[in-house]
Structure formats: C-alpha cells, structure tokens
Write a protein that binds this DNA or RNA. Structure first.
Lengths: 199, 199, 199, 199
DNA sequence: AATGAATGAGATTTCATTCAT
DNA sequence: CATGAATGAAATCTCATTCAT
C-alpha cells in the first residue's frame, strides 16, 4: 500500500544525473538564482516538465544538488584527513576553489530555502566533528604556535581563512591574498617542524 | 565611479531613503532574491513604478543599496581604526552580525550582477588598504605571536574568521564557535600584552 | 504613507469591467473551472498578465465576480420585495435561471476557495434576513395554507424549490418540473386569494 | 448505457475500488477540481499511470465514480421507499448530508464534462420516476394539505428543500434552517395524521 | 513628483495522456 | 498487472520595464 513516493525518478537515472550536473554548472557560473527548472532543462537538453518529473519541487532539486555536493565534499575531506600531513591537506581543501564557491551559493540560498538549511547545518556540524576527531589524534600541538588552539577552533580558523580567499578571489579581490597564503603556509610549515622536534 | 543614470529622484529624498531601507530589510530577512522593485515598493508603501522613478533599473537600486551599506561600513571601520585598541575593534567589526550578513548576500549577488561586482571589488580593496595603513602604524608586532604576519594578511585573517562565524551563526551552526572566539580573544589579549612589554 | 494597495486596478476601469464580464460569461457557460486568468484574458481580448494587474490573485478575481453578482442579486431582490405581490416576485426571483445558475457555481466553488466562502455566507444570511423582514410585514399568513410557516422557513422553501428547478433544468432534467411549477403557482394564487378574503 | 472503453482493470479489482474511494474522498473534501489522476493516485498510494490503466481517461474515472455513487443512492432510495412511512424516509434521504454534498459537486461538474451529463440526467429521471411510482401507491393524499400536489411535484419539492438545507449547511449558512426543518416535519406529521383519519 | 496602464518573459507547478517495457 | 519515462499544455503568479499622463 506504499505511500506515493515524493521523488519519482530513480536515484540512479542518467537523466537525473545530467540534470544535477546542469544545475551545478548553472549555480557555479551564474549563481544560485540561475538554478530554475527552465534553465536546468534547457541546459541539460530536456523539457522543463521532465525536470519536475525527477524533482517534484525546486526545493527537491536544490536539496539533491546539495547532497550530491556534500557527498563529494565528504570524500575530499576524508582523503585530506588520511593524508600524510592532514592539517596541510585540510587547508588545501578549504582553499580549493571548486567546492568553496558552491558552498557560498548554498549559504546564501539557505536564507530563503528553509528546507535546505536543516541539511546544511547538519552537514556542517558533521564535517567539523570529523575534523576535530582528526586534529585530536595529531601528535599534540603543545609547544607550537597553536598550542592553546582547541581543535574545533583550528578547524573553524582554516575554514574561515580559506573561504574568504576563495570568495574574494572569485570576485576579483586580490589585495592581501598572496600575503595571507604565505603566512598560513609558514604556519603549517612551522607546525610540522615543531612536531618533528617533539618526536 | 560612474553613477548609473538616475531619472530624477534626488539623493536626499525621503522617499528614496525609505526605498533603500525597505530594500535592505528585504535583503537581510529574505535574501537578495527578494529585492525586487515590486516587493520594495509594497514594503515601503509605494507603487512599483515609483521605485523605477527613483532607480531606473534594478541594478541601480542594488548598487545604491550597496553604496549606502558601504558608506556605513566605512564609518564603522573608521571608528574601529580610531579606537584605543584598533585590532580588537577591527575584530569586533568583522564579527558584527549586522553588516556581515548583508555582505554575504552581496557577494552571492555579485555572481550575476556584473555591474555590482566592480563596485564591490573597488570597495573591498579600499577597505583593506585602510586597514593595512592602520596596522602599519601600530607599535610593531615584532616579537609577538603575529611577528611575521604582514598587515594585509592580518586584515584578511580577521575578516575570514569573523565572517565564517557570522555566516555559520546565522544559519544555526554552532560547533567550534565558542572555542574560536575565545582563541581569537586570547590572541588579541596576548598581542596587547606583548606590545605593552615593548613600550 | 498609504499601505500598498492589494488591488491595483481602479474599481471603475472599463478594462476591469470587461474582465469581470468575461469571467461571468465563462462561469455561466463552462463552469467555474473555466475562470482562469488565461481564459478570461483571451475572452476579453487582453494579455493574461493584465488580468493579474487588475486582480492580484485568482481569488481576488472570483471574489470581485461574486460581489458584482451579489450586488446585482441585491437589486433584483429589492425590486421583488417592493413588487405588488412580493411573494410571487420572490418566487420568480428564485426560479430565474440567469442568477441561480451562477449561484450554484459559486456554491461548488466555495468548497475549495475558502476566501470566497466567508463572503458568500455573509451575503446569504443578509439576503435571508431581508426576505424575512419583508414576509413579516405581509398581511398575515394566518388562515392560509402556510399558516404556521415561519418567514425564514418560507424563504428557504422557495429558494430550495426554485434552485432545484434551475439546477436540474440547466442539466436537462425535466421530469416533475412542470407539475412543481404549477403547484407552487397555485399555492401563491391561493395565498393571494386567502389574503384578499381577510381584507 | 454505453460503458466507456476501459483498458483492462476489472470492475471487481480491489485496486480499482481503492481508486474510486480515494476519488470520492477527494471530491467530498476538496471539491471536484481536486479529482485528478495524480491526486487520486497519490491518495490511494499508486502511481499515476496505474490510474490510467484502470480508467483510460479522467472522464471514465468520473463516470465510474458517479455510477458508484448512483448505485449507492439507488439502494438508499429503495430502502426509503420500503419504509413504513415512505414520505418521511424520502425526506430524510434528501436531507442526508452524506450524498447531497457529492450531488452538488457532480451537478457543477456536469457543466464542463458533457459525457457525465447524460448519465446524470438519465439517473435523475429514473429516481424521480421511482419516487412517483411510490407516492402514487400511497393511500391517497386527497383531503390532506398536499391534496393537489402531483407526485412528481412532491418529489421535486422535497428534493429542493432538502438539498438547499444541505448545500447551505455545508457552507456554514444557518439562518432559517431550524425553522424549515420543523415546518417540513410538521407537514409530514400532519400528512400521516390525515391519512390515519382516512383509514 | 507620482501614478495607472500595459506588456512580455519567465518561474513554478500541475495536468492528462501516451508509450515502451 | 504495473511502472518509469516523457511530453505538451496550461494555470498561477512575479518580474522588470516602458509609456503616457
């Protein structure tokens, strides 16, 4: 007696994947406001109604898009956390243009898509928790520049600095960027060195 | 600096001010997508055509809104830079919810309003330059935690960290926030102490 | 500082009147479901968006249409109540195809247009009250066939009988109609006669 | 009598019954406009295409729904006609909320579903004929209040009065209702008494 | 300085229906 | 029996913008 499924199109459909891809490209290139059923359809080469067949509402489409991106982020994060120098890998993850640009769009979008917000908050908290877990396993930051920096704060610092670089960089703002990148790199280098000394 | 041609509406008009106020409230509460001539008109109690009388195009309205906000930011920044502890004041400026939320909306908006982008880039560069100027006048950071942090990098660091706190906070993400705030405060405190020692 | 008007088009506009006329014709000919902005526009010779200019929402259009019709009904009712034989005039009013057909559409419509319902209930109660007032002023029904029929019940009886004749007649059902009309006519005639005797 | 071509779905299928049930509930709760293949499917827990499998077109579904309801009405009517006091039972049948609400929807629907109209007219005529037959067998109304009321007219009177009570009652109109009910009850009581005297 | 009228485009969504499997 | 995919039409509504007054 199965309750009528809200999302009809199968998760695995190639059509569905093409739509998500088109939506992501639109969001990246023209901002979240460009992600309309019409534009997604025309970009992916379908009729608008087919988009509605796969994603009942625009919210559904956006949430699917976010989840799709989140899965990708998760993978990248896990890779970073497993790298030889996880902190540096984490920093590179945050300073990576490809994903942070989308994150910005989604954060702005969350303002008027309440349904999205819940997903995003949950995902952000999960990611931070994963990072904290990793940082805590690091061979102690004591004696380093970041001696009294709690793991969660460190995660947030890197995220904030990385994000502002990407956000401003995307717009064309450049002043201070080179200096900041160098400074963070030095930080990470010193941290690595300090830790070597401890060993 | 080219001001977009405006039909008549004087800069000083109370009507114009009411429209900008309505536009800002809309952007703050419902996101930039809610800033349409129609909604601004209805919120401010005017007819849609009157909005077009004051702001020929929607771009004009958004640019005026950005300039309005930028002027306000400039004032706040100047106040911060003139404070007894300018770094701390700068930090408080960045961590201030009232303006950063709007900044986020404008950054997302810049993605599809090319006309806005130029203004924003110019203004960001100007602000950073003002901060660098101030930091440079500070009684040297040498010997402090931030010894080799170039002024422009310091400005960017505080901006990034402050902004991520506000952005996430607005969404409801809380993890790591308290720790990060404490950490930055300690930093600033230590910096102030170091500098006192130097005197 | 006038609150932004919800209904923009002036009450007196000829365009607006043409739209209401088109809407009424559609409702009469094809049923309430045919009253869509598109169809109204095309029938009246305007673009669909112009209909939305005059009637913000479809509810607004329908409510305006109901009020328009209600005003007309009120006039007809007042005429009937002022006639030499008000009961007979009232009966003719109820059995009149032109308005009762629309009333039926509105009653069905009230099922899914909650905003309409309130208007309709209020108007129905008012009309019945006006009729009761009139019937009460009649030179007593005592001694007649309808001796113990309260005015409100009489109003409701005539309304119900008239309405079923119109409803069924519109569909093509005819059986019993002639007999029922004759019977009511006789009733009214006898009533008139009884009253003459009393004088 | 021509049954609209149905692809396969047997009359007796439980699935088909569930669909009709969902359709009826929708029509009752949200009006006839809510009876779409999509909504029926989602309410009954099936895919939209399955509805089309059982009912080729929406007209087929509506006609089946009408026939289903008509069968039910027929049963209720036969019960009423076989009751000890058939006229009172008939009145109760007409004043019964459960079916009259649907009848109203169908009458409005008949306006734009020509295919339905024929069925409805035929059924109405049949029902009236059955009632006339019964009334004619009653121990004569001569000498009673309704002496010269032809059977068909009496049927129509009761139908009209009952229907207006239900229609208005459903909307929330109450004025005159209590009085009208009492009056009809008295009528029926007097009629029963008159007939007893005759015996 | 302000407003009413009008327009064309486009967004979101629902719909009935068909077809292949 | 049943479903997934696809389509084209249409409904509702919002939008920016223009123009005449």
């Amino acid at each position: 007696m199965a309750i009528a499924a809200r999302r009809i199109g199968a998760e695995s459909s190639a059509t569905r994947a093409a739509m998500l891809e088109a939506a992501e490209a639109l969001m990246r290139e023209e901002g979240y406001a460009a992600v309309s059923t019409r534009k997604v359809a025309s970009r992916a080469g379908f009729k608008p109604s087919l988009v509605h067949y796969y994603f009942t509402t625009t919210d559904d489409l956006l949430i699917a898009l976010f989840r799709h991106g989140a899965d990708h982020s998760d993978m990248m994060l896990e890779e970073a956390l497993a790298a030889p120098d996880p902190l540096r890998a984490l920093w590179e993850f945050f300073a990576d243009t490809s994903r942070t640009a989308l994150t910005l769009e989604f954060m702005a979008l969350a303002n008027h898509r309440k349904a999205l917000r819940a997903f995003m908050v949950e995902h952000s908290d999960q990611m931070r928790a994963r990072q904290v877990e990793m940082i805590r396993r690091l061979p102690a930051l004591e004696g380093t520049v970041l001696a009294d920096c709690p793991p969660a704060a460190l995660s947030l610092l890197l995220a904030g600095i990385g994000r502002v670089l990407v956000m401003e960089g995307g717009m064309g703002v450049k002043s201070g960027h080179a200096e900041a990148r160098v400074f963070v790199e030095q930080w990470l280098a010193r941290l690595a060195a300090d830790r070597v000394l401890q060993d």
